[in-house]
């Protein structure tokens, strides 16, 4: 499965559009991380716990999107976009969407 956030894939030709695919997840941080984070708010610096959590959750949302694409029989997802929104204090929704397509190798000269 090829996943890109561009409208086309260099060296490939889109032969069929399978439809919009999406994946989301809502995650909350646990209390320990919140306490660590409020301490970090005094001294500054990176909130590593939050970064990890968001990376993990985004991976989850991506894999949900990919399984949808697989069900549709696509072999690539193009024009992928990410969106993040905080629902309440302490919870965030991570959303990813793209267009599932079928691609084949293009003639080599077209690059």
């Amino acid at each position: 499965m090829i996943v890109v956030n561009t409208e086309y894939i260099p060296g490939k030709k889109i032969v069929a559009i399978k439809g919009l695919v999406q994946g989301n997840t809502v995650r909350a941080k646990h209390v320990g991380r919140d306490i660590m984070a409020s301490f970090k708010n005094i001294v500054g610096g990176e909130l590593k716990g939050y970064t990890e959590l968001l990376v993990e959750s985004r991976r989850e949302a991506l894999s949900r999107m990919l399984s949808q694409a697989q069900e549709l029989g696509a072999n690539a997802v193009v024009n992928v976009r990410f969106a993040t929104s905080s629902i309440t204090a302490g919870a965030a929704e991570l959303y990813v969407y793209g267009t599932a397509v079928t691609v084949v190798d293009a003639a080599p000269a077209q690059g």
């Binding site: 090829i2 996943v3 890109v4 956030n5 561009t6 894939i9 260099p10 060296g11 490939k12 984070a37 970090k40 708010n41 005094i42 001294v43 500054g44 610096g45 990176e46 909130l47 590593k48 939050y50 970064t51 968001l54 990376v55 985004r58 992928v80 690059g111």
Partner: peptide, 17 residues
């Protein structure tokens, strides 16, 4: 070019007091 794939990078930075 060849071999397209998606890359991500993220960071959460806290403000100090």
């Amino acid at each position: 070019v060849h071999g397209s794939f998606l890359v991500l990078g993220s960071a959460v930075i806290a403000t100090d007091y």
